[in-house]
């Protein structure tokens, strides 16, 4: 089963919406770099209408934090994990109004989580500006038990929930924010191909 990646979202990179009343910028780890690059080309006054929600993962977290803060956004929040960042995002979106532009930068699972929150409040995924930075690790949904396994870098791998050995199918669900994992040895149990580090 080899297939092209037509269901995989494209992440064309951040660009500034000059008209948004609120630029809600959500970034994680290396994704902060994308926001700094955006700052270099954004129009004057852009960050006075911006709120930055930074998930400070990875070694360079604190360096990025200082640099992001120096952009002087109207609001700046630093949160320690994807889960806490999403909780804060949910809270901000609950009272946000039309005229809000959402930006997401970071790893693919992180962007996936942001898009799920957007979907929940009626934001079309096409209107979210995204940029992939950092690790190529994937979030995988086991098609059998439906459990999500985070930080998958290799295929096949073991489902964290049901323990089946799964290969990673290049099929992506925006609703789940995850790729699909399918049992690799369903036809001949135990016949498992060598592990490849595909998504470092």
């Amino acid at each position: 089963m080899t297939e092209p990646m037509l269901s995989r979202p494209r992440y064309p990179g951040l660009s500034a919406d000059p008209h948004a009343k609120l630029n809600l910028i959500v970034c994680e780890g290396e994704g902060a770099g994308a926001v700094l690059d955006l700052a270099a080309k954004a129009p004057d006054g852009f960050f006075s209408r911006a709120a930055i929600l930074f998930c400070a993962t990875g070694a360079s977290g604190s360096t990025y934090q200082t640099k992001l803060e120096s952009l002087q956004p109207a609001n700046f929040w630093v949160l320690p994990s994807i889960a806490t960042a999403m909780f804060r995002l949910k809270g901000v979106l609950a009272t946000a109004t039309m005229g809000t532009r959402l930006y997401a930068a970071g790893t693919e699972p992180f962007i996936g989580s942001v898009l799920q929150e957007a979907l929940a409040v009626g934001i079309d995924f096409k209107s979210v500006f995204t940029e992939h930075r950092g690790s190529a690790k994937r979030r995988i949904q086991c098609v059998h038990c439906k459990g999500l396994t985070e930080d998958v870098t290799a295929s096949p791998f073991t489902c964290a929930h049901c323990g089946l050995t799964l290969f990673v199918r290049d099929h992506y669900s925006r609703r789940l924010g995850a790729f699909q994992g399918v049992c690799v040895d369903a036809e001949v149990p135990g016949e498992v191909p060598p592990v490849e580090e595909l998504y470092p």
Partner: peptide, 18 residues
């Protein structure tokens, strides 16, 4: 899988077809 493909566009859910 409907659970996986629900919400996808026409070309997205046909992605695995070679």
């Amino acid at each position: 899988s409907l659970d996986f493909d629900i919400g996808m566009s026409f070309k997205e859910w046909h992605a695995p077809v070679p």
